[in-house]
Each structure stands twice: as structure tokens, then as C-alpha cells.
Simulated assay, not measured.
Amino acid sequence: MHLIIQSLTPIDAPHYAALATLARSQHIVALDSHALRIEDADPAPGPWQTELSAYCAAQALDYAWIEPERKLADFGLVAMDMDSTLITIECIDEIADYGGFKAEVAAITEASMRGEIKDFNESLTRRVALLKGLDAGVLERVYDERLALSPGAERMLAGVRAAGLKTLLVSGGFTFFTEKLRERLGLDFTRANTLEIVAGKLTGRVSGEIVNAEVKARTLRETCAQLGLAPSRAIALGDGSNDLQMMAAAGLSVAFRAKPVVRAAASVAFNYVGLDGLLRLF
């Protein structure tokens, strides 16, 4: 296997020997100052795996095991969660902040993303109900004043497009934001929840089917079918428990600065580097 090591800061020479020992291989290729590929590394279970994980955590390094023959162009679709994945914020929490009750909504969001609230529909319904009566103009304010792309997002998108992949943004958040991001970033497909607005006010309800974990996975499979792809040719990126089914349906799953339950289930976890870390895997 290839063992890919990435860091936000330059990887200094002293790391090379330690990582080579832990990977049980001396074949090291510097991809750039922030990334190494250790070829012919040994992924077999053993005490060195625990030591590798502990070493990387202590040094703020991300690592991933990748089959040597895998190429980015072997995939056909990148499916992304939006909140806290493609973007840095949880939009619903920021909307609530304009009404003075961010802490209450954020607590529900956090519990849901950790998997402590098993029913996403209930979680979303409870949070959206708290938005009732807010002026719909707060959505524009959140987008203009608070929404930021995650580090490396635009470089990652450019790289996957250059390799011929299509892009899907599928979110348990809201269409107001996914559609703006579709236009801004040139995304191919989006799916999210629609906030109900009457007379310029949020009603505290969503319209139509709620985009929960099952719907996210179904959307990935349907988009793959539309493109003539097997789901194994999809890459899925997410951070919360609502992304787990979508990530399980894909051929490669990436946990991005994710909750522990998601990191444990994913093929690859990026705890430190940006979304463009995806490009260095191949």
C-alpha cells in the first residue's frame, strides 16, 4: 500500500525516519513540502499501527492508506456535505444567532452530528421550529457575512474537475445556500431542504422530504445512476452522523474534521489538512 502523510506545516526531515520505521518501508517520496508518499508500506494490523496513529496525532499529521494503482480519474463523482465540510459554518446555527438563540439550536446540532440524537428528522424539525418568525433576510446576511469555504475547497474542486469528476453537494441544510454555492462554484448537482417562507418570514417548517442520512445515500446512488457510474466510483466527504450512510455507499469516504463516529467509519480522515488533501492521495 501507499501511506500518504500530510501536514498543514512543512514536514521536517526528522519525521522521515520515524515514519519509515512505523510504515515498515524505506521508500519515501516527497510530494511537496507538506506531503509524503511512503511506498510499499505495510498496512497489516500490528502494534506499529497504534504507534503510527499516536505519532501522527501528536505531530498533527494526517495519514491515509491508498492502493498504489488507484487514480483520481478512476472515480466519477465527488459527493460533499455542506455545513462544516464544504463550508466552515453550520448555517442553521448562524441563522438562529440573528434571533438570539444560537446556543439552543447549536446544542441540538452538535448532539445530532455526534449521533446522540438518532432521528435526524426530529432534530431538524426541532431546530427549524425555533426559527419561526425570523425575517427571511437573515439568510442573505448569513451567506454574505458568515459563510466561508473550508480551506482547500476551491483547489479540491478544480482538481477533481480536471480529472473528469462531477460534483454533488447534498446537505441536511438548506437550498438557499446550496443553490448559491452551486452558482458560485460551478457544482453539477445539489440537494438540500427547503425552508418555508410566507410573507417574508420563516414559518418554522421545511417543505418536502427532509434530507436525512437515508436520503443522502439515495441521492448519491441516484446521481451515480444518472451518470452511468457504479457507487464504488464515488467519493463522499462528510463530518457528521447524517453523512454515514452516504459515505458507506461510496467507494472512498473522507471524514473532514469530523465527529469521532465518522472518523472511525471513514476510509480516510482529514483532521488537520484542507479539502485539497484529497488530491494528494492519488
Rank of each mutant, 00 (worst) to 15 (best):
E140C: 02
F177V: 02
A153R: 03
E196D: 10
P151V: 00
L187P: 07
A199D: 15
R182S: 08
V198W: 13
E214M: 06
A136Q: 11
S171Q: 05
L147I: 00
A129Y: 04
L181H: 03
S123L: 05
T190V: 15
T203S: 12
L185E: 05
T175E: 08
L202D: 02
D135N: 15
V215Q: 11
V170Y: 01
N212P: 02
F189T: 05
G133L: 07
A129P: 06
G164T: 02
N121I: 13
D188V: 09
R182T: 09
L134Q: 14
E183L: 09
A153H: 03
D144F: 03
L149F: 13
E183S: 14
E196A: 12
R155G: 01
F174G: 01
N121C: 14
G164Y: 01
S150M: 04
G204P: 10
L168D: 04
L124N: 06
T167H: 08
T175Y: 08
R146V: 02
G173Y: 05
F174H: 03
T194S: 14
A148T: 14
S171T: 06
V215S: 04
L169W: 10
T167Q: 07
D119R: 13
V138A: 04
S123M: 09
N121V: 14
D135T: 04
T190S: 07
R205G: 00
R191H: 08
I210P: 05
N212E: 00
K180C: 02
A153E: 04
L187Y: 05
G208K: 03
D144T: 13
G173N: 07
L139W: 04
F120H: 11
R184M: 08
L130T: 02
A153I: 04
T203M: 08
K132D: 11
A148H: 15
L124R: 09
T203P: 09
A213H: 11
K132N: 15
L202C: 01
G133F: 10
V211T: 07
V170T: 07
V170F: 03
V206L: 13
D119I: 09
L131Y: 07
D135M: 09
G159K: 05
S123D: 06
N193F: 06
Y143P: 08
V198H: 15
R184N: 01
F176N: 05
G204R: 03
F189P: 06
F176P: 08
G164A: 03
L157N: 00
E209G: 05
T203A: 10
R126F: 09
F176I: 01
A162P: 01
G159R: 00
A129W: 12
T194I: 11
I210L: 10
G137L: 02
G200Q: 04
D135E: 13
A148R: 15
G200I: 07
E196M: 00
T203Y: 11
R161S: 03
V160Y: 08
T175H: 00
A163I: 07
A199G: 13
N212A: 14
L147Y: 02
V170S: 00
K201A: 11
V215M: 10
E140Y: 08
L139F: 06
G208Y: 04
E209Q: 15
A213C: 02
L149C: 09
K166H: 12
T194G: 10
L134N: 06
E183R: 15
E209K: 14
